[in-house]
Write a protein that binds this DNA or RNA. Structure first.
Lengths: 350, 350
DNA sequence: CCATAAATGATGTACGTACCTCATTTATTT
DNA sequence: AAATAAATGAGGTACGTACATCATTTATGG
């Protein structure tokens, strides 16, 4: 015989189906003693609610929203694609995912958009935004509405209700450091670090990890402060030009931000120093090309599909108040070199 | 309104529910013209069968079996654990997974075990076994019984009915090569390659990829032929001792097999040459320890949980004759260095 | 055009759960 | 002990699909 059902539960607990239902769905109006008998029976026969059947009966709809920056870089585009793909494969699971784009560097607008989410439109939100006071407060407010939240890609450590789906960015920075230390061999010289903005949590954490390793394993290298592009092409060109002019013997470059094609163009315009090791983040068609042609030496990345699917699973789990498989939800830091580039190009839009 | 149901389908196609059912479940006795009308309607309204509801109605049980070698190494143990974990989280999905252990190096016994699987006990099998004629034929025979098969971890390229779940081992070998080439810097010397047996497909492929890269990027290194341990401690100690005695300046070691703790012990007994770079496969508690203490420099691994879950998804998809999300099923080659070691230890038994 | 076969419709039950209503039993208060 | 409140039971409908039975319509061959 198969898994125990509510019927078995009722029989074993010596109560009616109605009471089992009252207990299971916390409808109240049941004596504590009876509740205990039912919960005891649940344990004794190992009853687990059949979620598919429950969803069917309830005709539940999980309405999830991803809040993404309105950047047009490859990484964000890949996330967009991954969400669309997930949407297709989720048809069976009564889940619809929609996407909202918000100005990346306007915390006020982001907070405003978050505030407009209401329970009768949405059950869960994945938020990818820099950590600012306004955003944090808006996220905290969601808890009151009963809307589930995850912090997506970039952590929100001060919003306790937001589970973080993404890589450990400090470890990612350490990894970049270790690779740079190895790949530069015994050489001496300068290391340049570039990012979009140090406002964002991930850049801060990556820098932290990177510095720790450089100090420990590559004291022979002079590591410069972070340069910020503000995602502006003209500014990028200018700061790179200045830096390249004033820095003798650059042997390594660490690009901490995603959407690095503009930055790489600026660097290439200045000329890549011989034997200079370049390490960046996120496998996109740009970084892929540069790995293949040897311009870049390593890319540290996270699987976008995994990120999206994991966020969805976590959100649904929080909505139904059910546990998740921790090991399945851990996002791994992936190191991509020329030789382990995944072949499979089309399905994730690279 | 929600997703279209069979009722909508019947209405749009202008037939009864019974006929829709006949078409959907291929019960026959329906004119081609009618079938066409229904399939046209399916396309037009975008009908997709609600699998949960279908499973509920059918009270389907997916009975899956993993055929694992009876080795007692860490990697196999982790697979075992991952399967147990999957079993728990699959309760809701009418899936029971069981495990069969077979002598790793007895193709006859393996084939025999496969032959004894019959349709009324099992619906799908994941097979982790070296590729031999007997095993291949046994796998091909499963097709006749209508039992779904995936080749697990080690490919069975000549059994066309076995979908492969695992990493691209040639690429893994290339990755090992690239890492070894980088990590040894400009040094010259010997590279030793050790495995359990070159009979197994993964070892062959890894060696192929490794050699390609060594020839291309590290011609300064002398790469020796593969040594085989046959998973025998005494033999391992002997061949390592001989090799170490006769090989001057070992600067790199590539361990292609999993379950390397015995091999590492043998190497440590001989003494690890100074600055020798050691690269191996599969992140276990043994390789983890050696990454942390610096004995090993890199581990190339695959996520066991992902392997198991992917196999289960693929098997179920093949049983129900439904498609899979290709990008989700691709197993990535992961590079683990000291600095990107996943912290989360307990959940996967490391 | 009739007999027969083939195709289709109509209808009911089942799966495991949710949710509703109404009747009945049990406990608590006065 | 009666009046009231609280707890429980009994039973139905629904979700979307599978599967079975029997009645009815349509096509096919003689």
């Amino acid at each position: 015989m198969g898994k125990p059902t509510t019927k078995d539960l009722a029989r074993v607990a010596g109560v009616s189906l109605a009471t089992v239902d009252r207990v299971l769905n916390r409808r109240g109006g049941v004596r504590q003693a009876t509740v205990d008998r039912v919960t005891a029976a649940i344990k004794s026969i190992g009853y687990v609610r059949d979620i598919s059947a429950a969803n069917l009966a309830r005709s539940t709809e999980y309405r999830l929203v991803f809040l993404l920056p309105d950047h047009e870089d490859e990484f964000t585009r890949m996330i967009h694609l991954a969400i669309d793909e997930a949407n297709v494969s989720m048809v069976h699971e009564r889940t619809t995912v929609s996407i909202m784009r918000v100005p990346a560097n306007d915390p006020h607008r982001i907070a405003q958009e978050i505030d407009e989410l209401s329970t009768d439109q949405v059950d869960g939100v994945a938020i990818m935004a820099p950590e600012t006071a306004q955003v944090r407060d808006a996220i905290l407010r969601l808890d009151a509405c009963g809307i589930a939240v995850v912090a997506f890609v970039s952590n929100q450590p001060n919003a306790a209700n937001a589970y973080f789906v993404g890589i450990n960015n400090e470890a990612a920075g350490r990894t970049a450091g270790q690779l740079l230390a190895c790949f530069t061999g015994e050489r001496q010289g300068a290391v340049r670090v570039i990012t979009e903005t140090m406002q964002s949590r991930d850049s801060q954490e990556r820098r932290l990890g990177f510095d720790a390793i450089m100090a420990k394993h590559a004291s022979r290298l002079r590591v410069y402060p972070s340069m910020e592009t503000y995602a502006d092409a003209a500014r990028t060109a200018k700061i790179v030009a200045t830096a390249w002019r004033n820095t003798p013997e650059i042997v390594g470059v660490y690009l901490m931000h995603h959407g690095i094609s503009e930055t790489m163009r600026a660097i290439e315009a200045q000329g890549i120093p011989p034997k200079c090791v370049i390490i960046g983040h996120e496998l996109t068609r740009h970084t892929r090309t540069r790995l293949v042609d040897g311009t870049m030496d390593a890319v540290i990345t996270q699987d976008v599909g995994h990120l999206v699917r994991s966020s969805i699973r976590v959100l649904k789990a929080r909505i139904t108040q059910i546990g998740t498989v921790a090991s399945q939800e851990r996002i791994r830091i992936e190191i991509i070199l020329r030789e382990n580039l995944p072949e499979d190009i089309k399905t994730n839009g690279l």
